[in-house]
Design a protein around this nucleic acid. Structure first.
Lengths: 260, 260
DNA sequence: ACGGCTGTGTTCATTGAATGGACACCGCTT
DNA sequence: AAGCGGTGTCCATTCAATGAACACAGCCGT
């Protein structure tokens, strides 16, 4: 097929690679941007991007830049966890928010990261890095630790033996310390993180369990280190987490399972 | 390339066709479903679907069915209009909702349909057909008429000369009547629809204008035909619409433009 | 037990769609 | 006026995509 070039590569993989170049913070990319980020020849990238644009998967703005198209957004709307969990959890998030007036987040596991599927933010609360749809590391965030600890030994080993990036001075990167924390987390269902991702910000998280006892998400509140005492936050997070889990069909008797 | 088969077809188009088979109401599809809906040979569909699953664009559930994957949802998150407009408009939608306790919708134009990008629904309010991410016809909905009337003559002619489906007994399908309504709508920026989509449901809509005077969205409230008087609803919809437009940089002096 | 039916998974010879180097244009800076 | 980066187009080459064919498992009615 190709005059020359990189073999063993499917068209599909190239097409998807072009798509997944779009990331939070890089939502409007020129053709040249796509070429740089994918490393593919520009004629190839162009053909693929134009085809995606033809289908409405990408939009092309008057200035020539590509953005994610509405049709792709519509498709995303159909993702299962997202829609049901979000609408189910929303009232609880709102209650938590009115009670604490702090950032409230709902996240699920995706690969080796946590994905934020819903957030309520206080205007007066400190700015956070990531948005809805954004990703968080597993080893140094509240929701991350909760999800990781219930993600099965395979995932845990993969993450712990991989690069544990030191996002902040107080990030915990010693795998033995983490392993112990995860064990605690598996027992209690909660995780408390102090300034591990961003200096000055703490996070209190709780697992969300469905009717089969599977941990399908994590709920967390992000607070300033000096502001509220964690003892005050933790109970409400636990209560809300249990409430959501209950709506998902979980009952106190159901044993919480690992792995996913 | 193919042993035999339909030529003039790109791999990309096939891949996207598989993706876009997923629609509201059909969010979990078996391989056989995909084959039926695309009409492509099952070996081909399988190859494409598996590749999409490998990349996380689709998920494969234990029962073998495919669903839209989280990564696709994340991508959709990056669509421009969606995220900014939604967060911007949300407070206004909430205000409208608390004032009226009826369905409140925000929609944008996509091709020859309106796409709902945000909705607040009253639990006690009547069930609606479509969800967030769902589509509405242009010729017999409030948001549709608002968007259509400002969509340029090209779009208007295309829609009016196309099939004007009669969703309900009171649907207006006479193109001359519609043309007059659209002219009114262009002048006032609002549209009122009585039982044209669903018997018993009316809708009051208002355009959202950005700083350049372009109509980028439409806001609407859906009410029972017999419930509140439209005169009471209309002013609040107008007020909220103006509020959102103002946040988008629109000032009373800016002339509203057509076409998009 | 058996044939029919549907859903799923795998194989492989064939071939045309994908490829990417090359060329060209435009606007901008040096 | 030469250099540069971004964008757009062309076309001979060739290998990845194709899909008919085969295989198997589960289910139903007989």
């Amino acid at each position: 097929m190709p005059r020359t070039g990189e073999p063993g590569r499917t068209v599909g993989s190239r097409l998807l690679e072009v798509l997944f170049v779009f990331q939070p913070g890089h939502t409007a990319l020129s053709l040249a941007d796509l070429v740089r980020k994918t490393g593919m020849p520009h004629a190839t990238v162009r053909r693929l991007a134009m085809e995606l644009a033809d289908f409405g998967a990408l939009d092309r703005r008057p200035d020539g830049r590509f953005t994610v198209g509405l049709r792709l957004w519509q498709l995303g709307t159909l993702a299962p966890l997202t829609e049901s969990l979000r609408t189910l959890a929303q009232p609880f998030l709102e209650d938590l928010y009115t009670a604490l007036h702090q950032h409230v987040q709902l996240a699920v596991l995706e690969g080796r990261q946590a994905v934020i599927i819903e957030r309520l933010s206080a205007p007066e609360a400190p700015e956070l890095v990531s948005q809805v749809g954004g990703r968080l590391p597993l080893h140094c965030t509240g929701v991350g630790k909760v999800l990781l600890s219930h993600g099965g030994t395979e995932l845990i080993e993969a993450v712990l033996s991989g690069e544990l990036r030191e996002y902040a001075p107080r990030s915990i990167v010693a795998s033995e310390v983490l392993r112990k924390e995860l064990a605690d987390c598996r027992r209690t269902g909660t995780a408390t993180v102090r300034e591990e991702l961003t200096p000055g910000l703490d996070s209190v998280a709780m697992r969300i369990v469905n009717g089969e006892g599977r941990v399908v998400a994590a709920l967390s509140v992000v607070v300033r280190t000096d502001s509220v005492k964690h003892q005050e936050v933790l109970p409400s997070v636990i209560a809300s987490g249990l409430g959501i889990s209950r709506l998902l069909g979980w009952r106190p008797g159901v044993k919480v399972r690992n792995n996913s």
